[in-house]
Write a protein that binds this DNA or RNA. Sequence first.
DNA 1: TCACTCTGCGCAAACGATTGACCACATGTC
DNA 2: GACATGTGGTCAATCGTTTGCGCAGAGTGA
Lengths: 338, 338
Amino acid sequence: MVTLGDVAARAGVSVSAVSRVLSNHPSARVSEATRCRILQAACELRYRPNFAGRALRSARTRVIGLVVPDLTDALFAELLHGAQDEARERDYMVLLGRSDNLSAGGEVVGRLVGEGRVDGMVVQVGDGVPPAGLGAILASAAPIVLLNSVYEGHVGSVVFDDVEGARLATEHLLRFGHTRIALANGLRRSYTARQRGIGFRSALAEAGLRPAGRAYETRLGYTAADGRGALRRLMNLPEPPTGVVVANVDAAIGLLAEARAAGVRVPRDLSVVSVHDSWTAENTWPPLTAVRMPFSAMGRAAVRAVIARIETGAMTAELVGDPAPELVVRESSTRSRR
Amino acid sequence: MVTLGDVAARAGVSVSAVSRVLSNHPSARVSEATRCRILQAACELRYRPNFAGRALRSARTRVIGLVVPDLTDALFAELLHGAQDEARERDYMVLLGRSDNLSAGGEVVGRLVGEGRVDGMVVQVGDGVPPAGLGAILASAAPIVLLNSVYEGHVGSVVFDDVEGARLATEHLLRFGHTRIALANGLRRSYTARQRGIGFRSALAEAGLRPAGRAYETRLGYTAADGRGALRRLMNLPEPPTGVVVANVDAAIGLLAEARAAGVRVPRDLSVVSVHDSWTAENTWPPLTAVRMPFSAMGRAAVRAVIARIETGAMTAELVGDPAPELVVRESSTRSRR
DNA sequence: TCACTCTGCGCAAACGATTGACCACATGTC
DNA sequence: GACATGTGGTCAATCGTTTGCGCAGAGTGA
């Protein structure tokens, strides 16, 4: 391993001179000739600063942790990409942690922050995590930004405009003349599910429709299996809906598959619109009408927020509105037949 | 931050005593009473060893890097889970790097290893990376294990039994009486694509079928769009195949969607079997018959291999055969009508 | 010439954990 | 009594980087 000392020896100067030159420190008062010798020596020896040495000395790692509950879908990949792009531009790295089922990833947060492996964290809590578990994590006083959830008294969160996303999806069905519209939503305690419920109902209200009743809003979850369950429940109603807003694209994919299996024709018998878009939505049958949410921008915003928290102490509760949620019309939705 | 010194002060001993006790060092000769005091002090102060200090001193991080070209599908998630499970059991962490389009992630390997952020790496090179780029990475003499590709002279790779996987898929179609079977394969230079081609052709040969000709093997790639392209190409042949083996589940999903759009009925007109299974394959229409490959086991094996390389210097070229590839029959394949 | 200031660097002390060397004391052996 | 052995620890060096401080020598103004 090449150290500062090696470079210094080759350039015939002291380690401090090398350090100052290589990190462009303002206090680096060296002649142009010396600077050149140092740079050349570093280049020839392929010097790379040692991460541990630097982190130990400066008590900063320039790494931020990202903890998500699930990464089996393309949405997460987009989020991670945005986060990594933003991090790279600011000379940070992203360390992907794993939030296990138990304790909302509290252990991983403790490890990463407690052992000084990261300077701050972006945490997305799982759908089914009770708020109690969250408190313990946030109590650590470490720079933490929550993703898609807000917690009493914790300012430091980045959320989608889920209300608007759900509203867009609902309005699309309303424009197609649907009046009996269902919502296949996430779990009740999920923050995003609550927001999407609000957007859904407000769109209905604005259209002068009274809510179709509790039974038309399932709250099973965001997985494909949950979407399947939602379809069965909704189509077994005395008056099944003619349109359904699914709060997650993975659930919509399951719902679509279950519709085929149950003989429900989409979009003829049932129009389907999902919140979230991904490459999988283009490849269902029929191709899924979806509201594209800015996952990449959210990743960027989260990293930006946590870096701001680290470097300036500023706390932000940000709503990611740019680019705005956008409806992508495909073939799973059509005009109501009545 | 709580340091060893803080714990030592509270327990009334020296830092070295604390260090030895907390790390269960064999040279820790302390009385039972002292050991207790130290443990209690550490517990009360919530001591956590500082990562940087430890890494600097020991020149080891107990972190291994995982670099993959693409993480938009569920397969990758399974791989990562396996890797993380194995790492955790051996008291390591996994750091997910990003292999950009350019230079096969050579830059990220250089950074992670060069700056001492990781002790070793698991690298899956992208499908379209020419072998030349690989050489540069492997030349760094760092502990690197390749995933699903082998490189001349580099022993340190973990691969699937792709030959067997493709063979299983092909034999399934053969048992159904298909004789005109196509292969929608990955790019020519891809190692896995070559292996899957071998398995495909050997199954045909064992069944006494002569290969149906070059045109029946497309080599477009592993994405959904590539699968769509493969379907169009194959169904435009003078004598379209009645069955197709798709070398990747994402491509199979695209192929299925394109079949619907083109009016090709699956499985009536065309039976489809894919290599790789994932939750998305259960939710296509018709549900996709697939060969389940042991992604989780591969993640574990890769981490095991790189740790072995780090700790004992042992190099391995391993074929992940347990659990063996397994055919999961769903509804996208059926008996040939002739 | 003296007292400054400025330039161009080097010295050395941290940061936190690990570990070989060493020390004081007690006990056992010849 | 001299010596070895064992017990229960402490001391101090080390890893690589950063940074406050100091120190020559050159230049400047009075």
